[in-house]
Amino acid sequence: MNCGFRLICVSVTVLLALFVAVALGNVFLVAPAMLSRALSDGSVWPVIKVSLQTSLLAALLAMLLGTPVAYVLARRRFFGKAAVETLLDLPVALPPMVAGLALLILVSPASPTGQVLAKAGIHLIFTQAGIVLAQLFVALPFYIRAVRSAITAIPPSIPAAAAVLRATEAYTFFHVILPLSREGMISGFVMCWTRALGEFGATAMVAGCIPGVTETLPVAIYTRATSGDLASAGAAAFCLATISFVTLVGLRLAFKEASLRRKA
């Protein structure tokens, strides 16, 4: 009985791992000639640049905005907290196209918000700022979740000790809460960044696909593959998958090293 159960579990694990390996293998095994041609003709580099620029900026903004939000959600009790939490989590469950449409309506010149933004000289439709907004919208909950968990894991007696040692809440936040949540912040940043990097639906809705301006890697994969340029689409997919893979492996190694250092 035990043996059969174990066999089923192991078989399912092996089959799933094989499925992922074969599916992703097609991306990583893109013909070298095809890849070098696509990279050398220069059409992929601007796409990589736009993607890295916007996704890193979105992740940095998520860090800046999400950290205090995560702190409030982890440490404070207030009326309507559950509603606020659900609202902030909603972009995770929302289909990206719906998120994109919501943002498009919000910032379109016809809307009151769009008119205020236009008066302030801020243009979000078909711009890189629009990409950052869309990426931030869908990726922010990932950062908030990771940091909130890290802050919740700090025993309440630690910030209480800081308070009775005459530290203000702000001092405690910067000198106790943030250092103790560092791992959560790093993993949240990386999750948020990779989510932003891979964002397609909302980005395409808000910023469209202007080559060299608003064309990101996922958008490029879609437009080039649907127009029959598989070499270029393959190269873009290869770059995106490589960035994700290297990030994931790097993060695992960094945490493993940190954990070993702590044990030592």
Binding site: S157, I158, A160, A161, V164, V176, P179, L180
Partner: peptide, 13 residues
């Protein structure tokens, strides 16, 4: 006023 906690509550970092 300050407080010495039962389980120390030292800052681990």
């Amino acid at each position: 006023v300050t407080l010495v906690f039962q389980r120390h509550a030292l800052f681990p970092h």
